[in-house]
Lab assay of single mutants.
Amino acid sequence: MAAAAAAGAGPEMVRGQVFDVGPRYTNLSYIGEGAYGMVCSAYDNVNKVRVAIKKISPFEHQTYCQRTLREIKILLRFRHENIIGINDIIRAPTIEQMKDVYIVQDLMETDLYKLLKTQHLSNDHICYFLYQILRGLKYIHSANVLHRDLKPSNLLLNTTCDLKICDFGLARVADPDHDHTGFLTEYVATRWYRAPEIMLNSKGYTKSIDIWSVGCILAEMLSNRPIFPGKHYLDQLNHILGILGSPSQEDLNCIINLKARNYLLSLPHKNKVPWNRLFPNADSKALDLLDKMLTFNPHKRIEVEQALAHPYLEQYYDPSDEPIAEAPFKFDMELDDLPKEKLKELIFEETARFQPGYRS
Rank of each mutant, 00 (worst) to 15 (best):
F129V: 01
E60D: 15
P356C: 03
D235C: 10
G245A: 11
C127F: 13
E96Q: 10
T68V: 06
S266C: 15
Q66G: 04
K54I: 13
K73W: 10
Y317Q: 00
E334Q: 01
L218S: 10
D321A: 14
E71H: 05
N47V: 11
D321F: 08
A9N: 01
P23Y: 00
F279W: 03
K73P: 09
P328H: 12
R70Q: 03
T159V: 12
V188S: 07
I56R: 14
I256T: 00
L112D: 01
S41Y: 15
T206E: 11
V101H: 03
K342V: 09
S360R: 04
D111P: 01
L308I: 02
M221S: 08
C254R: 12
A174Q: 12
R91F: 08
G37F: 04
V304I: 12
V214G: 13
L130P: 12
I103P: 06
T63W: 10
V18P: 03
G230E: 01
L267Y: 01
C254H: 05
I74F: 15
Y358V: 07
S246N: 12
I302K: 09
K340H: 04
S153C: 13
D251P: 04
R225P: 11
R225Y: 01
P23E: 00
V214C: 09
M108F: 07
D175A: 15
V18C: 04
H180D: 10
L267S: 04
K203R: 11
I347G: 08
L200F: 12
F19S: 04
N297Q: 10
H61D: 07
E349G: 06
A143N: 02
E303K: 09
H269E: 11
F296I: 15
T351K: 01
R277G: 01
F228G: 00
S153Y: 07
I89P: 04
A5R: 08
V304F: 13
L252E: 09
K99F: 01
E326Y: 04
G242S: 12
K151A: 05
K300M: 14
M333Y: 03
F78N: 12
L264R: 00
K292Y: 09
E314D: 13
L335G: 12
N82V: 03
F329C: 00
C166T: 08
H299Q: 12
Q119W: 05
L170M: 14
T295N: 14
D162M: 00
E250R: 09
E250H: 02
E109D: 15
E109V: 13
L287M: 14
P268Q: 10
A143L: 04
P152W: 10
G357F: 08
R24D: 05
L146R: 10
T94K: 07
G37E: 13
S248R: 12
I255H: 01
E71S: 13
E33D: 14
L69T: 11
L155V: 06
V104M: 08
K342R: 01
V101W: 08
E305I: 03
Q249D: 06
L69S: 13
I227M: 07
